[in-house]
Design a protein around this nucleic acid. Structure first.
Lengths: 262, 262
DNA sequence: ACCTGAACACCGTTCAAGT
DNA sequence: ACCTGAACACCGTTCAAGT
């Protein structure tokens, strides 16, 4: 219901998971997804900077006016791509939550999903990065930004839930200052930063891509140890957990990433 | 000397701190700084997305061709602004290093400087964020990207130095996997992510701006605790250290930020 | 009610002519 | 050797006309 308030007749395609009153609305939503897929494909093929409204119009079966009925500006399109990326991220998070392990391992599984998503869909991750840029934020439509915020909240709640459970299990000390949302923010910032810096790092620079996975596991383990999230990394082999997450939950996607690199 | 290899006659203005052989080179470098200041001012005034090569040309005393002699593209200009931002950051870092305290406090001072810089120069921070975006990276000149990488290294070395000293003082456990550069990367990613997410968060969203400072201190303390960087936050009042850093090293800048907010 | 695409304003970039 | 700015190609956006 709260979705519907944010969705006028031109922007309800963002509510793709919700039901629709009529066929027209559904067709509109489907066309928007089609346009987004096309735009992402163009960015993949031609390079991120080469995406143009003209090219998108040329590649689709609709006119300029119709495309602008979906996206109020190029930046709005970019923001929509970011939102869509967060939707696929959320689906990965929910799969991560099914990992059969302790709460700290579950959180690791979510971090694995976050990193996997960036590797699997680099173009999508770039859209998320760009959407944090004022050039995009200044020009995206209000409805789009609102929807993005809602999704960000949904993603955050996945983290909150794990931290809360860990607290009530006494695997994590409770404290007024260290509320679940604070801890989620810390983990999110660390993962976002790690991904952004690794993605931006050119070939020769710093650590090679192979080290990246190790670095990310180290980073998150340092943070969780600092939270006194038990079992501590000195008490448990989280490299093995990481591998188990890879094998048991995301084997298919990991194979895809490896095929890409090769 | 290694600078000179990266600097052809059109791009040596990036070596502003180095000496110049002749007056022409110096004049060129000074003009570039003038153009950068102008560009930043325009972004401040008109909004990030409104910066245009046309407007920059109109605002300065030079022609289009001359501006393009400095910046090979708009993205190259953005990258130059990012580099310049990192130069002011480095200066703040070096001041932070003079803080009279233990190594962990020194690292905190550097983090304080990093955060302060983002608050003091939001436009500059946005340039850094944008420069991590492929749209910019794809179109910036090679020389510019090289110079940026050099500066990034210089910034990283500040962190490395602290971690290395802490290790040799046995304030920080030594380990093959946890090399100083790894720890620097972790802290950098956390700070970069925290700043980016807080900057992008709109007014209503999540935590208010007042909480941001507390969050950042908490985040970095969690990470450093996880590294077992002693004294641990349970053994020392780092909120007080944070305040001392603010008062003793950056009083002037902090006052400026407060005046801005008011 | 929605789609269309010509038309417009503006922006990034180049380069022949000038000094 | 460097500067100039007219000129060009392209891009984002709009909107009157059409269905």
């Amino acid at each position: 219901m709260n979705f519907k308030l944010n969705c006028n007749k031109q922007n309800d395609s963002t509510c793709i998971l919700q039901g629709f009153k009529n066929k027209r609305q559904r067709a509109f939503a489907e066309r928007e997804q089609e346009l987004l897929s096309l735009a992402e494909g163009l960015m993949d093929k031609l390079g991120f900077a080469a995406l143009t409204m003209d090219k998108l119009v040329a590649a689709c079966d609709y006119s300029k006016g119709t495309v602008y009925n979906h996206f109020s500006s190029k930046e709005d399109l970019l923001c929509a791509l970011c939102t869509r990326s967060m939707e696929t991220e959320l689906a990965l998070f929910e799969r991560a939550m099914t990992f059969n392990g302790c709460n700290r391992e579950k959180l690791l599984a979510v971090c694995f999903a976050y990193r996997l998503h960036a590797l699997l869909n680099p173009t999508q991750f770039y859209c998320v990065l760009s959407a944090k840029t004022p050039a995009v934020m200044e020009k995206a439509s209000a409805a789009r930004l609102e929807h993005q915020q809602l999704l960000e909240q949904a993603l955050g709640e996945v983290g909150d839930k794990i931290f809360e459970q860990a607290m009530s299990n006494a695997e994590l000390p409770q404290s007024e200052q260290r509320a679940a949302s604070q801890l989620t923010f810390a983990a999110w910032a660390l993962m976002f930063g790690s991904n952004a810096l690794f993605s931006a790092a050119s070939e020769a620079q710093m650590l090679q891509q192979l080290d990246a996975e190790q670095s990310i596991l180290l980073n998150i383990n340092l943070l969780l140890d600092g939270m006194q999230f038990s079992p501590l990394s000195s008490e448990h082999d989280y490299a093995q957990s990481w591998q188990r997450i890879s094998d048991q939950i995301f084997a298919e996607e990991v194979a895809l990433v490896k095929r890409k690199v090769r």
